[in-house]
Design a protein around this nucleic acid. Structure first.
Length: 549
DNA sequence: CTCCCTGGCGCC
DNA sequence: AAAGGGCGCCAGGGAG
């Protein structure tokens, strides 16, 4: 496969290097920046891997010009992975501008102030960085896994740019109607909607606090305590435990007030334009390898507004999510055949019950979540001995990850993403002076807390790798289902950790459903080879996102 | 005034 | 006696 490296020379010229398999430059061309899309489109039929400093600095402009590419290497993301990977030799990755690569941030269309003038990326040498990265992977004892991780990470970068380009279809009129039905028509700026305002006197009266501002947690807490309620905070869960006339109206107020603040009319104004919601997706934005997002809270769109996400006329959403991704991933990465057997069922937790490992589905779920999050007490903690007996390899893997974290060691995902080193005062190496300000108890608590983080890291991070492989493979399969530009074919519009939304012409929905499943099976094969662990999907073809679950 | 922290809560 | 992982975002409120 050929590789083509793109670099900028000033604002107007792009330097194109054709690279040999060992990374040497075998061809050099200069292209005016304005004709880059035409150039890339002309080369794309040969299916090169485009190598560039950072997908966010190249791909949005190509997409805007109607050009889609099949694959790339994103040096920024690859650098971040390699810098922390226990599978990579740091000496091979180190160069004169390593600090610059460490510090390189993605750019977003929403804040173009830095770009293209004065971009720190322009002080870096992508050709040299690419050579270092190639050498690092080639020398790795796990180069297949590491290579897969870098390819998947880069594929994710392409998906992210394409999803922002296409946007999630979003009906502002439907959203406005939902809000109006729940809390009355849109008020003038700064005022409470009538449906919310109506609840304030009820709360004040029930607490005997005529001037209370229910939006101020400290004031609210004082008023609750003054009224004699045994609460130490104002959380909804706490209030639900209390029997008092204020609870009903106050919980209702909090529910509506939250919706108004997070996804009300101001959210619509800020994030929905031309019938599309376009968040900025940040692949690799979380230490575990999960994506983050900025703008509009894309990863936490609450259920009540999802009816506003509606496919275009003649189009459908194919919504797919994988049930119990993380315990399945744990079964695969630990090679635990008993857990993989339970994972053969569409419902892994029911599979655990059917095999006699646990008595009820609820116990299976709480036990597994506790194992992966590090619960040691309560119902979840009490289940650990039984789970350990039944699934020694799976439980053993997360336990060992926790112990390693408590020793201050790095843990890693299946494909080699490394955890950060602890920075807390508890982690001072033996022999050095511990922080005088931290008691032995505090140190123990922080040490265990870091162990819970590393315990979860290996599972959450490997789950993210499965999802990346799924996404990257699905993207190319969707492209082959249609013709014309990206948004006239079936295309991804949303991704939330273990769920995808594809926007597709209605007549292709069945085929989309099939390739979503094929891509999931392929992701399982890429990560776990022939080890028999299944990743069954819930797939629905719907007019609205809200109808999927 | 701006900056930063916290409580609270939405998602996985 | 609701403990236990990862996020982003908002409003309030204190610090500078």
């Amino acid at each position: 496969m050929s590789r083509v490296l793109l670099t900028r020379r000033g604002p107007d010229v792009v330097v194109v290097r054709d690279l040999s398999a060992d990374g040497r430059t075998v061809g050099l061309t200069e292209v005016p920046a304005g004709s880059l899309p035409r150039f890339v489109a002309g080369r794309e039929p040969a299916r090169p891997r485009w190598v560039w400093d950072d997908t966010t600095r190249w791909y949005p402009q190509l997409l805007a010009a109607g050009v889609r590419v099949e694959r790339c290497t994103d040096l920024r993301l690859a650098h971040a992975v390699l810098r922390r990977s226990p599978f990579a030799d740091p000496a091979l990755l180190t160069g004169p501008d390593t600090a610059g690569w460490d510090a390189l941030e993605p750019v977003s269309a929403a804040e173009p102030a830095l770009f293209p003038l004065d971009d720190p990326a322009d002080g870096l040498d992508p050709a040299a960085e690419h050579e270092r990265q190639q050498a690092t992977v080639a020398a790795s004892p796990q180069r297949a896994r590491l290579g897969l991780l870098l390819a998947a990470e880069s594929g994710g970068a392409l998906v992210a740019a394409e999803m922002t380009h296409a946007g999630m279809p979003w009906r502002a009129d439907v959203h406005d109607r939902l809000l109006t039905e729940l809390m009355g028509p849109r008020p003038v700026r700064g005022a409470r909607p009538a449906g919310l305002e109506r609840l304030v006197p009820a709360v004040r009266a029930a607490l005997g606090a005529p001037d209370l501002n229910p939006d101020s947690p400290p004031d609210l807490l004082r008023a609750l305590q003054t009224a004699g309620l045994p609460v130490a905070d104002t959380r909804s869960w706490t209030l639900e435990q209390v029997d008092h006339p204020v609870v009903g109206p106050l919980l209702e107020y909090k529910r509506l007030s939250r919706l108004l603040a997070a996804n009300g009319w101001a959210w619509l104004d800020a994030w929905v334009a031309d019938g599309r919601f376009r968040p900025t997706w940040l692949p690799g934005g979380v230490v575990t390898g999960r994506w983050a997002s900025s703008g509009g809270g894309a990863l936490s769109v609450p259920a009540p507004v999802r009816p506003a996400a509606r496919a275009d006329d003649g189009w459908l959403f194919v919504v797919a999510d994988v049930a119990q991704l993380e315990p399945r991933v744990l079964a695969g990465m630990s090679g635990d055949t008993a857990m993989a057997e339970a994972a053969r069922a569409a419902d892994l937790y029911q599979g655990m019950v059917d095999s006699g490992a646990v008595a009820t589905r609820a116990e299976a779920k709480i036990g597994m979540l506790g194992a992966m999050y590090g619960a040691t007490r309560g119902e979840s903690g009490r289940m650990m001995p039984g789970l350990t007996r039944r699934y020694p390899r799976a439980i053993g893997l997360v336990e060992e990850a926790a112990r390693a974290g408590e020793r201050g060691e790095v843990v890693h995902t299946l494909l080699g993403r490394g955890s950060p080193l602890p920075t807390g005062a508890w982690a001072v190496p033996a022999g050095e002076e511990p922080d005088g300000g931290l008691s032995a108890e505090d140190r123990g608590r922080e040490r265990r807390s870091w162990g819970r983080f590393t315990r979860n890291f290996v599972v959450q991070g490997t789950g993210a790798e499965w999802a990346l492989c799924w996404l990257a493979d699905l993207r190319n399969r969707l492209w082959r289902l249609g013709s014309g530009e990206l948004t006239s074919r079936p295309h991804l519009v949303f991704f939330v950790h273990d769920e995808v939304v594809v926007h597709t012409p209605a007549e292709l929905a069945d085929e989309v459903g099939a390739v979503v499943r094929t891509a999931a099976a392929e992701a399982g094969r890429l990560l776990f080879g022939s080890f028999p662990v299944d990743f069954p999907l819930d797939v629905a073809a719907v007019g609205s996102w809200a109808d999927a679950h």
